[in-house]
Design a protein around this nucleic acid. Sequence first.
DNA 1: CTGTTAGCGCGTTCAG
DNA 2: CTGAACGCGCTAACAG
Lengths: 333, 333
Amino acid sequence: MSTLHDVAQLAGVSPITVSRVINNSGYVSEKTRKRVEAAVKRLKYVPNGLARSLRSQKTTTLALVVTDITNPFFTLIARAVEDTASAAGYSVFFCNTDESEAKEQEYLDILLQKQVAGILLVPVRSTPSSIKFIHDHGASVVVLDRRISGMTMDTVRCDSEGGAYQLTQLLINLGHRQIAMLTGPRGVSTAEDRVAGYERALAEAGLRPSASLVCYQAFTQDSGYEMTQWALAVSPRPTALFAANNFIAIGVLKALQAAGLRVPEDMAVVAFDDLPPALITFPFLTVAAQPAYEMGRVATKLLLERLSGAQAQAEVVLPTEIVLRQSSGNPLT
Amino acid sequence: MSTLHDVAQLAGVSPITVSRVINNSGYVSEKTRKRVEAAVKRLKYVPNGLARSLRSQKTTTLALVVTDITNPFFTLIARAVEDTASAAGYSVFFCNTDESEAKEQEYLDILLQKQVAGILLVPVRSTPSSIKFIHDHGASVVVLDRRISGMTMDTVRCDSEGGAYQLTQLLINLGHRQIAMLTGPRGVSTAEDRVAGYERALAEAGLRPSASLVCYQAFTQDSGYEMTQWALAVSPRPTALFAANNFIAIGVLKALQAAGLRVPEDMAVVAFDDLPPALITFPFLTVAAQPAYEMGRVATKLLLERLSGAQAQAEVVLPTEIVLRQSSGNPLT
DNA sequence: CTGTTAGCGCGTTCAG
DNA sequence: CTGAACGCGCTAACAG
């Protein structure tokens, strides 16, 4: 645990000279540079980033705050964020909020104490309070995946409404008229936007969207399972289910299997979010796939630009890709 | 961006008094405490963790260094680490080495500069150099998932040898004699230990392990695909394939499908690592499942204990659980 | 119960 | 080309 001072002493120079060597700043003669470098090596000197940052009022630390990193969608985002950040010399803290406002607030507090330069945030609520809080404390923020209303800010998300619209249209074109929408919590923009796209497609087809076919619950497998049981009890029974995210989709498939129903013969299924090809042996679900890695990459780029002084706020909305597979089935006869 | 000083001024006290209020240390009268707390609120004061840590020579920061967080095994470990760390007031940096020694070294450098208190490391190489490096700079380390030789140190890993032994035994009991082992890189303990368990089971059954049935490559899907093509060309053709991790297993299944072979009818398959139930609709692979979350939890606990002064080094080896599913097939006739 | 002094390790500013 | 002084924001140690 040697310090600049120790190195300076060993090299027979002043601390500032060592600093100059390490940071390649200012003029240092070849001779003294060599001497200093030797001393650095001898002492295995590593500069203290805390002191550096305290002095320079800058850190090279970011944070990624998601609801749950075990969701492959967020895992992929995390990987992209870390790749992009580390390439630019930044480190990344990661945090899981589990959709809890209290946890989000705790994490933000701690992150600001740690003087992170910027935060990539999947906000639990769609109000701008968290974003204001971060700005008030001098950090930058890019909102990921979700929409926040009432304020312009850097955002990177997917076109949930459009993707849901296309998936629903697909089902309608296959002849489905009773399509149940199993979505996430009210107040979460992705959950609501997907419902909006679904309803727009229905309306355009002259079908009256019925609230009794939409179920808001959690973005979890258990919730998907329960919502499916609910949907199967609706009368008349839906002929197709729309799972608003990947976890819900898995719950749906399990519930259908438990109920002895085949997909797509007895029930068509479509979903938002693809599972990474690396994890799936036999792709089966028809989905609106989000470019998760790209989202993370773009969001981090945006944050880094903001940190180096970019002014204009950007709102990036990436398109989803409809991937047609077996689960949506053939046209109804 | 107000400081202790600002708060002190507003409250009409000295900085140290504010410090005492914030840290609940030393005596402060109710009256001044109230005044200080009001000032803190007014100024939205957040203590500067950098300065705190610089002064106290302590940080509440850990780091998790894995090969690739998108591997669900590591994702789950990451989640466990973050849960356990944050419950104890610590934050976690995450890093992906992609099995590159150079990347590992870069990350360790940066992390030590940032004065992390401890590191959870999945080491790229099985030599203790990285561990020594970390210790030399005053940080603690717990080695995760892999073995390192030549030094006692805190370690948490699974019984790779034992799990592989059991899986191989299972195949032997089903009547298989030609079992190909498709594993990770030489020099990585998990890759080698799984081969060792495989060979022990063969030897015990009186079967001479043949080097020509073992393939060392990468722990990736592509590698699994290629190794399968290799295995299918071996003569006599193996009747069972052992995939040494989850990614290899997926590559195996894809390659078999591409070759028009059915599992388990035409080829039995077993694998190390289960995929999280949250991601899998219809579990199919017979596996040796590692308790990934538990590994992360225990490792973090261990690291935190070391940070609070525990002395004895611990080596925790958790058992794997054999999960029998369809891919291993019925007894050969 | 409260304040003063000093210094954690570094880099900016200004002299030489 | 090199160095001295100072302060980033905070808290330990010691007064009072």
